[in-house]
Design a binder for these strands. Structure first.
Lengths: 251, 251
DNA sequence: CGCAGGTTTGAATGTCGTCAAACCAAGTGG
DNA sequence: CCACTTGGTTTGACGACATTCAAACCTGCG
């Protein structure tokens, strides 16, 4: 799966995709280790020109809050790293409602009814598109509307999938499900055909995503390690030793 | 809040909304006990004519499976009753991922990645729109695209809200949250200014929506009754005696 | 080296699930 | 009209799994 053809740009950075791929689907290029499929890829040259001067690339460190929902920014394309979307109860209990990886498109035209907070989980690069610019593009471009619709439907499916995890799975299954989710989005096959991944979030955030406590998350990870399903280096680096075993434990 | 102006039709049934209301927002008319805001309301006369011959109104009894995701039907407007969307794990564990009330718009153009099953919870009336017809309308109409986008964003917000309930609330809070949800969508104020509602689903389905067992749901309802927060007639009919108390218990 | 933050592990507690029985409401047939 | 049935609901006793509280332990970094 070489990285070639249909070269497009997002905020000045070159992005590519295989010629025969469906433009709506993100493509992971193993050669260059980048996933493609951002908003920029559905723009035609004239639209890209319009966007080029307006879109700004920004970088953010772990823990930094991103004011996506404020007036400042309309949408943002995640081009590197992972972002944590969460919602808090008045008494401080927190639930992470989504993780966004490259090349997800974040934010929305009409602000959310239930405000989310977005925070950089890792070192993050965004391609920010001011609300006014995007609204102009949306008015003109058919494909952008469909891209926005497709992204929100993808997010909806992901949210509903996770509802099953939160409502009906055991702690062990939830942790396995999270590892699989991260592996699917960011995992890379190493030499031995095993999947390696970097956890983008702390044990505490994992707990807030899984509806558990951080102690329970830690115990389940230890158990997977002791059972030989995964190997862990440091606290963030995981290698999936047996994908079938992990899938079996994910429910 | 009288029921007047902007009379439109959905599959032959008259629907109305107040003149000054935002067309994108559902409107509950206390006078006629119907919520307005379905797809038909964003159509202009010529589009309605196109739709009139194609859309079919159908009725379904409780428990009936609706083949929304199959090729048969593209979208459907719920015009009466409630529909239960659920997802099941291989071993049979079930999670209800959403309830759709009138005037929600169901289904989608591009089929869901994670297939849902839709089932009539109560006696239900649908206004079904064949996929081909809707695709034609979507190609032409700006407002329909925005309506589809708005509905999917509403569903996304609802799903994420519920993720907080599933991940971070206690059994008592979950049950209170469900009562408030149903009251918000279908509740009617009785004489004494109290909210009355009919539960559209059984204790078992409530449990599957809340990520609990039906016994736990039953216990929590009994507790709310004993504490004077709600009154129950039969098993399905609930009166909220103290809305503030219920809200306080919803977390 | 030593500190700080995050993580792992342990023991005790509690909430919710499981299993089981009683109960209720609505409908059927004698 | 009343037993009887049926499906759903309520209540109880018990147990398991996840949480809580607490201490020890890594890992990265100054």
């Amino acid at each position: 799966m070489a990285c070639e053809e249909r070269v497009t740009f997002c905020g000045g950075t070159q992005m590519t995709r295989p010629q025969d791929a469906d433009p709506a689907t993100p493509v992971h290029c193993r050669a260059c280790q980048v996933r493609h499929g951002g908003l920029c890829e559905v723009l035609d040259p004239s639209e890209l020109v319009r966007l080029a001067g307006q879109a700004r690339r920004t970088r953010h460190g772990p823990g930094e809050t991103l004011a996506i929902e404020s007036g400042e920014v309309g949408y943002a394309n995640v081009t590197r790293g992972a972002i944590k979307l969460s919602r808090v109860l008045r008494d401080g209990r927190q639930q992470v409602v989504g993780l966004q990886f490259a090349p997800d498109l974040m934010g929305r035209l009409f602000s959310s009814e239930s405000p989310l907070s977005a925070e950089a989980a890792t070192e993050v690069e965004l391609c920010r598109i001011p609300r006014s610019v995007l609204e102009g593009l949306v008015a003109d471009s058919e494909r952008i509307k469909l891209r926005l619709l497709a992204q929100s439907l993808r997010d909806l499916d992901a949210a509903r999938d996770w509802m099953v995890t939160l409502g009906r799975k055991t702690a062990a299954e939830r942790v396995a499900s999270l590892l699989l989710l991260v592996a699917t989005r960011t995992g890379v096959a190493d030499g031995a055909g095993q999947l390696a991944l970097e956890l983008p979030i702390s044990r505490a955030d994992m707990a807030d995503f899984l509806g558990l406590t951080l102690e329970t998350v830690s115990r389940q990870i230890s158990r997977l390690r002791h059972d030989g399903v995964i190997a862990v280096r440091g606290h963030r680096s995981v290698v999936i030793l047996s994908l079938p075993a992990l899938e079996a434990r994910a429910g």
